[in-house]
Computed example of a mutant assay.
Amino acid sequence: MPLSEHEQRMLEQMERALYAEDPKFATALEGSGLRTYTRRRVYQAIAGFLVGIALLMAGMVAQQIWISVVGFLVMLGCAVLAVTGWRKAPKPGEQPLPGAAPQGRGTRQQRRSMMDRIEQRWQRRQDEQGH
């Protein structure tokens, strides 16, 4: 649901006030922080994947199957983390959803219901101010 012109102006005023009052905090709230966090998580998953390969190879050389299995499981887990982290990362310049958690906790349904509650509160405030 797009914002009305009045709501858009109010949002811009609040953003300007936030930047004027506390620029460091405002910068921390931008998508770049989440992008940096996600990128770091993907790099850690790639490093873990390489460790898994090393374990897999070490298990083969030492003829210890359990080490190879652990290496394979580490590789699999890290590959899943890297792919899901990469998909959830906001694109450069894109703002994350206000209800989205950085680690992807919560389902889309839960985020939607939170947004619905926020919108209902906003409408209630607007109705109270208008009357």
Rank of each mutant, 00 (worst) to 15 (best):
P102N: 02
V80L: 08
R39F: 14
L73V: 01
V61W: 11
T107E: 09
I118Q: 13
Q13S: 07
H131C: 12
L73C: 07
A79H: 09
D127R: 11
S113Q: 07
P23H: 08
R112N: 11
M57I: 14
T107A: 06
V80P: 00
M114H: 14
L34C: 05
P96G: 00
G106P: 00
M10L: 14
G99R: 09
M10G: 09
M57H: 11
L81C: 13
Y43I: 10
E15D: 11
L76H: 06
K91Q: 14
R39M: 08
R125C: 08
Q123H: 10
P102S: 02
A79C: 08
A101K: 15
E15P: 02
R40M: 14
E7M: 03
G104D: 07
R35T: 08
S4D: 00
W122H: 15
R41C: 14
M10A: 13
G106Q: 02
A101E: 06
E128Q: 13
E128K: 15
T107F: 02
R111I: 04
V61N: 08
E15S: 01
R87K: 05
Q129I: 10
I53Y: 05
S113E: 08
L18R: 12
I53G: 15
A47N: 10
I65G: 11
F25H: 09
G71S: 03
P102C: 01
Q110H: 07
G31I: 01
A58C: 13
K91D: 10
P90R: 13
K24L: 09
A58G: 13
M14N: 06
A58H: 14
E128I: 02
E12C: 08
P23C: 04
T38E: 14
A28I: 06
G33V: 07
M114G: 15
G71T: 02
R111L: 03
G52A: 08
R16I: 05
V42I: 11
A62W: 05
Q8L: 03
R35V: 06
Q63I: 05
A62I: 00
T107H: 07
P23G: 03
Q63V: 02
R105P: 07
A100L: 05
R121F: 13
Q44M: 11
L50V: 14
H131M: 07
A79W: 05
E30C: 12
R9F: 00
E30T: 11
Q64C: 03
Q8G: 07
L11H: 12
A62L: 04
D22E: 01
A54F: 06
E21H: 02
V51H: 01
L18D: 02
